[in-house]
Design a protein around this nucleic acid. Structure first.
Lengths: 250, 250
DNA sequence: CGTCCCGTTGATGCCAATCAACCCGGGTGG
DNA sequence: CCACCCGGGTTGATTGGCATCAACGGGACG
């Protein structure tokens, strides 16, 4: 039974990642979200800190909150009866978490802190009432739902039809693009606090095999991933491997 | 290069499936959607018929319409450079198609008619302006976006971490549950106009191997799929295989 | 009657899961 | 302090499952 993100964990040995920025410099990655952001920020009632490995939202548990990530990383995942785990999506600073339970708790996945994470807590009920009056806010929420759906759909295509090496290339490119849009990381490198087995669980591979795939990427001089840092060595080669087009992120 | 749904095709040899109902008896599957349904129906400007195999929305093509399915089936899919196809989701009567392009054309996948299909066309711009005034309508749209996201996420888990036989079992159970909620099909059987290779492309398998999986399910006396008809022989065995819980559909 | 699409089955080969061993660095406790 | 453990990463050997290639049958349709 995999449990590498279940225990509360010790003090993170992992560098605090890409999050050493002003908390107001959040992922203003698109017009709608930018417009709605002010209204969203206003709804944050309190700050919450989650330690690395803690569940932020647990499946089935009633909860009346959504969260805005100020800094740190999280992931949504599902555990299967056969003991495996599928990670649905990783979440980076600026992302909005848990909106799906706005309308139904059944829609939501487990949500777990990958690094120590700082969250703005938003009360679902006040969000709901605000939605009725503030139109830009509803647009913002809708946008963010669509964007997440597009990311997940892309992820689905990745897992369903791409070979592991292409899948991995696509993953790192997408993550880089997302961080870039959120105002973090450079074009050719970024901090990434994920472990190999976390990524493997997102890509539908075993950790062992993902490790070999990383080796291949290294030997192709396409990219490296060491000590929580991703470096793109040959963008064109990578993009060719990944068949990547970032337009769905905008 | 797979193309079994690309050509316009001849007159469908496939029975017109589960769609022989009153067109107003649409998938009123949930409170929010029900509330918003009237408003949505009112926005339908004209009816459109698509022949089996026709693209309803094609990636990249500008289009300012969303569609409501009156009857017939469709699917959203993406084609990869390597010549394979991944089907993201199947759509049944009552589903709302193409809302993601409400906010950005980049978000949308290809959309194709699987059977001859009857659609209500909704102008995106009037939908947008309506959203600003009609609150139940925005809730309805939001709900439908969340639900679709939940379905896709479930699909992702399926492909990423379940073995083909469990995947197939899950697929048929989900489809059955969706049809049921939409008011079609009985508990233990339903019409399903999909071909084996369509389903295989949704499940991330080859058609050949999916065929063998169907054989296994048959030999386990769990279910059969013949001539466009699904029959569940042993629900408990199936549900055990699939680890299925339908709550995310409601 | 020939063609096309769909479903079915067999034979073969490869790729990724699995099992296993080992390294490294950091914590922890005797 | 050293011994030990534990989580994360790396590599090798082996197995099996799924893709691939190929052939055929049947039904629908021109």
């Amino acid at each position: 039974m995999p449990h590498d993100l279940l225990p509360p964990g010790r003090k993170s040995g992992i560098p605090s990642a890409t999050t050493s920025r002003n908390m107001y410099h959040l992922s203003l990655h698109m017009s709608y979200l930018t417009n709605g952001r002010g209204a969203l920020d206003a709804l944050v009632t309190r700050k919450r800190i989650c330690m690395k490995g803690c569940d932020i939202i647990h499946e089935g548990k009633e909860g009346r909150s959504a969260y805005l990530i100020y800094n740190g990383w999280a992931c949504s995942y599902r555990l299967l009866r056969n003991g495996t785990r599928q990670i649905i999506n990783f979440h980076v600073p600026g992302d909005l978490l848990g909106i799906r339970r706005l309308l139904s708790p059944n829609f939501d996945d487990n949500l777990c802190a990958i690094t120590c994470i700082e969250l703005g807590e938003i009360d679902i009920d006040s969000l709901l009432t605000m939605l009725c009056t503030d139109n830009r806010l509803s647009m913002s929420i809708l946008w963010s739902a669509f964007r997440e759906e597009a990311i997940i759909a892309q992820h689905l295509v990745d897992i369903g039809r791409r070979k592991p090496i292409n899948r991995a290339a696509h993953f790192f490119l997408e993550l880089g693009a997302r961080l870039n849009l959120a105002g973090f990381g450079a074009k050719t490198e970024y901090d990434c606090p994920l472990t190999q087995s976390l990524i493997a669980d997102a890509l539908g591979l075993t950790a062992v095999h993902f490790n070999r795939v990383l080796k291949q990427l290294r030997e192709l001089n396409a990219m490296t991933f060491h000590n929580g840092r991703v470096e793109f060595l040959d963008d064109r080669k990578l993009e060719h491997l990944a068949d990547f087009d970032s337009s769905y992120l905008r």
